[in-house]
Design a protein around this nucleic acid. Structure first.
Lengths: 357, 357
DNA sequence: CGTATTCGCTTAAACGATTAAGCAACGATG
DNA sequence: CATCGTTGCTTAATCGTTTAAGCGAATACG
């Protein structure tokens, strides 16, 4: 086997030119005759030359790697996000380094610093709810919650809520229970607001926050704590609730199975809807009506904003990093109507039926 | 603000010593007087010195980054894996770079090469089912399927199946339907084998493979295709099946909701069990009995095997990289009994009831 | 007392890429 | 013919770290 692993010097030596010329030819920057440039590219290909990221990083100060900071990987929304970001970053020529805060707000800062120390060129941050990302010394794109500068890209959660509300209203639902998670979440509050707006002024809407304020620092999902007590949804149905709008598919599936377990048919007796179109939503029976985020678009926006900033400021030191002029975008959500929502059955509780007519 | 960002030279200059001494002091390698060493560490701390990964990587040839190659991030098992690996790698001082094959076998090789080109020191690979990892030029730890050398760490899926089978047998189930995914998956075949063994020789076991051989290159989960046709589990119950053992919680939840939708009570009329303890399993009603992998342990083993190899071979070139002597380990799975499995109701189909007695 | 052997530090050479600056040669222009 | 500007390449410096080699001075040993 040819032991010499290809670096610029090898190509240079092969063709009898200098490394600088090779570098110029491959990057297309300096002045190289078209003829020679072609020959250089050719031998580079022949030798299967791959530039050393380390060497390049040292010289240019850029690593070609983005950090992905998550509040908690175990959040089931993560796969969608990770895949979209990885895809977008990868096509933009960047690698993605994982940073997980494991549900602790304090760890978030630490995680971010570890990534910076590793030399990421920028980072996509999905902040833990209620936290804001302080100005760190590198370009940041924040997903899903407004942050200090304008570098935020997010789904239009409010409008998503509105779409869902309108959908339920169109089906005739007037008494709706919203199953929410934590009142600290901006996202969830947006969705609640939109839902109420979409349901219209006459609707009878109640919100139940499943996560108590008592544990604001608990992990996003506390699976071992949550199922302790049932949500008592059957009682709600008897009280006249005809639709349950969960702010997450996780909760929606929980509601669905609880209702089914109590012998309440979905969607005949009560409708159930969720958010995020997690993978389960299409698999359960009945499949869940839900709102899907356009993760690909969000990721594309976040990454392109990031790369623009990164490749924009030439070799500036940490100095003017506040100049992170990313577009503040709002990406529409998409209503996916499946089987778990249906027309509202005229409210005729069995007990009263005889009396009414 | 002090503009000078701390590098070795700054510390050296501050104390009037040479950079080499500073490097030695901080790494603890060369010969430095304890006194000076302490002063160096102190000023390093004071200046908030962080070594440049780029510089170090260039010199040492090691980047301090591991690659994580996944067949498909959208697999709901991914969060568990990613979190465990990130945790293990992070405590071992390594970063984790994501590489996603998006369900395509062909992309897997490409993904691996991209990571190598990025200079990872080693990689954890969860191969697409049916594929083996050819000898690439860097240390590899393979999870969940036997690979070329001995560098594999995996759950004991067979024994997991056996545990589940034994559990069901203890509850009195003799007629069991196994809901499997793809027959190409070694993991799933192991689980099936274990299940059969655990259920004992007298049991009436049938296996249904949900994924046809027709689409061997399709993504792991085809959520839009899967729910097309129901699994027809109600009919199975009428045929006398009392327990459904799904090889994935995803399928288990699917089975659970389908049964509930058909008015079949779980676990009274039929038991349902799954694998992997995905986050949903504890949230649905009834909560799922399932088998949990010890992801933390698997990740720890994989990462430590990797780091051992990496830090073992000093600065050897690609030459003897075949010497990847990682331990081939099998990590036990843990049965989590919840509400979805219960004692087998003596089989007295309603239609026959009157006749029997 | 002369010669080894440590100790404690410095000098210097890598690692592989980028890039500013320089230098011949050549054609065009005054 | 002298000068200027291009073109096409090379020289050399630089990024920040590690590490082999070197070199006085102090200590040990015969």
């Amino acid at each position: 086997m040819r032991s010499e692993k290809p670096k610029l010097a090898v190509i240079a030596e092969t063709l009898g030119v200098s490394v600088a010329t090779v570098s110029n030819a491959l990057s297309g920057k300096g002045r190289v005759s078209p003829d020679l440039a072609e020959r250089i590219r050719e031998t580079a290909r022949a030798l299967a030359y791959v530039p050393s990221m380390a060497g390049r990083a040292l010289r240019t100060g850029r690593s070609g790697v983005l950090g992905l900071v998550l509040p908690d990987i175990s959040n089931p929304l993560f796969p969608q996000i990770a895949q979209a970001i990885e895809q977008a970053a990868s096509t933009a020529g960047y690698g993605v380094l994982i940073g997980d805060s494991r549900g602790h707000t304090g760890v978030q800062t630490e995680t971010i610093e570890r990534l910076i120390d590793r030399g990421v060129d920028g980072m996509v941050v999905i902040p833990r709810r209620g936290t804001r990302i302080s100005d760190i010394g590198c370009p940041v794109a924040v997903i899903d919650t407004p942050s200090t500068p304008g570098n935020t890209v997010s789904s239009d959660h409010w409008d998503g809520g509105r779409q869902m509300g309108a959908h339920l209203r169109a089906l005739g639902h007037r008494k709706v229970l919203i199953l929410a998670g934590s009142p600290l979440s901006t996202v969830q509050n947006d969705r609640v607001g939109g839902l109420k707006a979409g349901l219209g002024p006459g609707a009878d809407v109640e919100v139940v926050w499943l996560e108590t304020l008592a544990s604001p620092n608990a992990p996003d999902l506390a699976p071992d704590r949550a199922p302790e007590h049932s949500l008592n949804l059957a009682a709600r149905v008897e009280q006249g609730v005809t639709a349950f709008a969960a702010l997450s598919d996780l909760t929606a599936v929980r509601a669905l199975t609880e209702l089914q377990g109590a012998g309440i048919a979905v969607p005949e007796a009560a409708s159930v809807a969720g958010f995020d179109d997690l993978i389960w939503s299409s698999v359960v029976t009945p499949s869940l009506t839900t709102l899907r985020m356009d993760m690909a678009e969000i990721a594309r926006l976040a990454v392109s904003a990031l790369t623009a900033v990164i490749e924009g400021l030439p070799r500036a030191r940490v100095a003017a990093s506040g100049t992170v002029t990313a577009e503040r975008s709002s990406v529409p959500m998409m209503l996916v109507v499946r089987q778990s929502t249906g027309p509202c059955r005229t409210i005729v509780p069995k007990a009263v039926e005889g009396i009414v007519r």
